[in-house]
């Protein structure tokens, strides 16, 4: 994975595989405190203690098709390399919360990458889910919810040209306003 926005996309895809209907994504950039926090909260099937403990082990997976599971282990590695850590809190039947922390200015911290591409992929590829995205940079913040798309484009194809155009513009301008490159 080249950047953190790809990790976010990957972890949210995990949540979707876990049958989550509601997913909250929070990105908190605090350069002054030398901290970057990424939080992904879902209401999917959740994991028991044993599984969530093993989830960051690359040689553990819940799939039967093969013996490796790299998503969470790669993100844990990315966090550890940048002076941070990955925390998984999960409860069967309730959902899972994944929190990754990073030292903002750590030389090995991967760049955030394009949250615009990650969010358009997630929102447009999963128009039936409730996804909310909050991005904070110091005191400024940007909010995007899939509900906003649904209300605005009720009768249109969820991946119609107007929807794509509106979403890209919203993300681009919104992120620029808080000083984040889309």
């Amino acid at each position: 994975m080249e950047d953190l926005s790809l990790h976010i996309l990957d972890i949210v895809e995990n949540a979707i595989s876990a049958k989550a209907k509601k997913i909250d994504i929070l990105v908190m950039e605090q350069p002054k405190e030398d901290r970057l926090v990424i939080e992904i909260n879902d209401n999917g099937v959740g994991m028991d203690k044993e599984v969530s403990r093993k989830a960051t082990d690359p040689f553990f997976t819940t799939r039967s098709s093969r013996k490796v599971g790299l998503g969470l282990s790669l993100m844990a590695q990315a966090a550890q390399e940048a002076g941070g850590r990955l925390l998984i809190e999960s409860e069967v039947g309730k959902g899972t919360k994944v929190t990754a922390t990073f030292q903002y200015h750590h030389i090995d911290r991967k760049p955030l990458g394009s949250m615009l591409e990650t969010m358009t992929t997630l929102l447009l590829g999963n128009s039936d889910l409730d996804i909310s995205y909050i991005h904070q940079k110091e005191e400024k913040s940007y909010v995007l919810k899939s509900l906003m798309l649904r209300e605005r484009f009720k009768s249109q194809s969820p991946t119609g040209p107007e929807v794509i155009q509106w979403l890209r513009k919203h993300l681009k301008e919104g992120l620029a306003r808080i000083g984040v490159q889309g």
Partner: peptide, 9 residues
């Protein structure tokens, strides 16, 4: 579009 960890990477 296939979006597993492998696809994304």
């Amino acid at each position: 579009i296939h979006m597993g960890t492998c696809g994304i990477a």
